[in-house]
Every structure is written in structure tokens, then in C-alpha cells.
């Protein structure tokens, strides 16, 4: 459940950034397995410069999501990302908690 948040709600920030004319991508936690730090539905909002707000993992994979989000902003096509300890990339951007998450990244157009 996403509570109504105040000024730090990523969805409000996404709208604000769009209004300022920035390119914006939105990353959303779609699915989690095991112990995942952020619940399904959590958002990270990213702009074309790599500025971001919110979180999808509490810091473990945000760097990778931001990089992918910049690509999504460039190409305009959405992407599904998956992170987890079983993944090859885990050594670089894994979830230390041992969980797995699926993150959907889309451009706000």
C-alpha cells in the first residue's frame, strides 16, 4: 500500500519534474521473493541527468536501476529488471539481504 505521502512522494516529484520540462523515468517494484527491503509498489523516480528520489531496495541496487532508467529515457521503451543473490551480477549489485526483486522501469511520457 502506498500511503498518501507529503512532498517526498516519488509520484508527486515525477509530476513536478515533468512540469519543469525534465525527462523522467519511473521504476516500480513489481515482485519480491524472500526478504526484500522495499515492498511491492515502491517507486524510484529518475530524471535525464541521473537525479533520483525514492527507493526500490534501500540502496542495494539503485545505482544499476538509475543507469537502466537513463537508457529507458533515451530509448522510450520500458524494461523489466531482476536482481537477486542468485544472479551473476549479484557480486556487483546484489541484495545483501538475500532476497530477489523484479523492477519495472518506464518512461513518463
Amino acid at each position: 500500500m502506498n500511503d498518501i505521502a507529503g512532498f517526498d512522494d516519488p509520484l508527486l516529484i515525477a509530476e513536478g519534474w515533468k512540469n519543469e520540462g525534465r525527462d523522467v523515468a519511473l521504476a516500480t517494484v513489481i515482485e519480491t521473493w524472500g526478504s526484500a527491503p522495499r515492498p511491492v509498489g515502491s517507486h524510484l523516480v529518475i530524471d535525464g541527468e541521473g537525479n533520483f528520489h525514492g527507493s526500490v531496495s534501500g540502496g542495494c541496487v539503485e545505482g544499476a536501476v538509475i543507469t537502466e532508467a537513463m537508457d529507458v529515457i533515451g530509448s522510450g521503451s520500458s524494461r523489466m529488471l531482476e536482481f537477486g543473490v542468485a544472479d551473476e551480477t549479484a557480486w556487483r549489485v546484489g541484495l545483501s539481504c538475500g532476497g530477489r526483486i523484479r523492477v519495472y522501469v518506464e518512461k513518463v511520457a
Binding site: 498518501i4 512522494d9 509520484l11 508527486l12 509530476e15 515533468k18 518506464e106 518512461k107 513518463v108 511520457a109
Partner: peptide, 15 residues
Amino acid sequence: MRIEILKQLNEAKRA
């Protein structure tokens, strides 16, 4: 995500 949908969603949350 379309900006119109995002605006509608934020509007619903505000209300």
C-alpha cells in the same frame, strides 16, 4: 506511463 495518468493518480491521492 502517460503523464495524464500520473496526474489523475496524484489528484486521486490528494483527494
